[in-house]
Design a protein around this nucleic acid. Sequence first.
DNA 1: ACCAATAAATGAATGCCGTTCATTTATCCC
DNA 2: GGGATAAATGAACGGCATTCATTTATTGGT
Lengths: 224, 224
Amino acid sequence: MPAPTPAPGETKARRRAGRPMAAVLGQDGITAAALELVIKKGYDGLTMAALARSLGVAPSALYNHVSSKDDVLKLVEEDLMSKVDFGGFSTLPWEDAVRQWAYSYRGIFARHTPLISVIAVLPVTDAPQTLAMYEAVTEGFLRAGFPEQQIIPCIVALEAYIFGAAFDANAPADIFDSGKLADSTPHFTSAVRSLGPERNNYPSDLAFSMGLDALIAGLGALRD
Amino acid sequence: MPAPTPAPGETKARRRAGRPMAAVLGQDGITAAALELVIKKGYDGLTMAALARSLGVAPSALYNHVSSKDDVLKLVEEDLMSKVDFGGFSTLPWEDAVRQWAYSYRGIFARHTPLISVIAVLPVTDAPQTLAMYEAVTEGFLRAGFPEQQIIPCIVALEAYIFGAAFDANAPADIFDSGKLADSTPHFTSAVRSLGPERNNYPSDLAFSMGLDALIAGLGALRD
DNA sequence: ACCAATAAATGAATGCCGTTCATTTATCCC
DNA sequence: GGGATAAATGAACGGCATTCATTTATTGGT
């Protein structure tokens, strides 16, 4: 990973002389195929072998366009980032723009949680879509009157919440079933039951909305 | 995974007649060895083979005590949960108790992010330590005057934030380096630079503190 | 028209992984 | 001491990401 990745966008370098065999597919094709594969079979089904097969190519051929499987995940991530809706930051009041952005962001990555561990730690350098999103969000915060130094921490806090909530959205409905230990956790068990007549309904969406409102209110107070 | 797991705590069942060979190590020993291995070599080093070797046993022997590697991860998770400090909920004002709990929780799991994808989706049934924590937190919320139905969503929201922040805490200092694309993201780049004279210092701790305060303030307003 | 250079594609091989299974080994009750 | 029980073993399996020497196709320069 600290290896000399050929800087996503080109594979090695273009020198001077003769041209190669026509590439079966470049990084765009690999990205599209990987995404399709993930949608159809999930992240367990995303193997280099399966990816190659869906492109009609031998697995080893992929390594002419991509330096590792992690590279493929980065490509998919960038593609997903371009689908996050941050348009509200140029048209809506700050609160509504944040809400719209956060819902879109969470909605997309809730179905791609295996990418979160990669994203959260991945430098944005040379990730144009991700950078475009950050630029738009930053502009929205500036326009709303946030001091410049507060903006990045605010975005980081919101993103942390969004990523965590994306995991949460995949929890099974019975995640809080205390089972045979219910007797030793009376208050918790009662609180869970109080959520509704149907037991075991997990309040992921309600919780997301509540926490997001709290964050928006709390962070919004930092404006000049 | 939906397989008939022998219900963590016993491996199969105890019948009537003769006793077995003395078990080299039970689940407690496996848990301890796994945790030690993770601390020393990281989660990449936690393989069934390495785990067995550190216990002086053949890999296949582990499967007499544990039904899969995922099972091992669950055991480690429970162990870590028991180390989360929720003591403040019986002694401190609600705000301070939440803060103490959140910092402890994040601090522990920041070094165990590979577990988060497991935890966030894992039923608490038969996870005594986890349940003990939830019970204490719930009691704290009740004592602070929260309506019963709000408590679980509040906890879920806080946990989402904590998990996301745990990922964040592992981000490299240069994660926001916009590199050669800096020109096309002027506001964002400027906001990043405004964080300090030393460029590339990632504000994970500051962001966590800010977001946590916002959440505490916003959720705290839900009390009766 | 050919040749040298270039890169893409191949197929075989590597090493690691989690997991299974028939078998052996040790322990205890009766 | 015999029979039941479960733990431990070692060999095997299939799948995985990745490497590498080799072949194939394409091109620009002469």
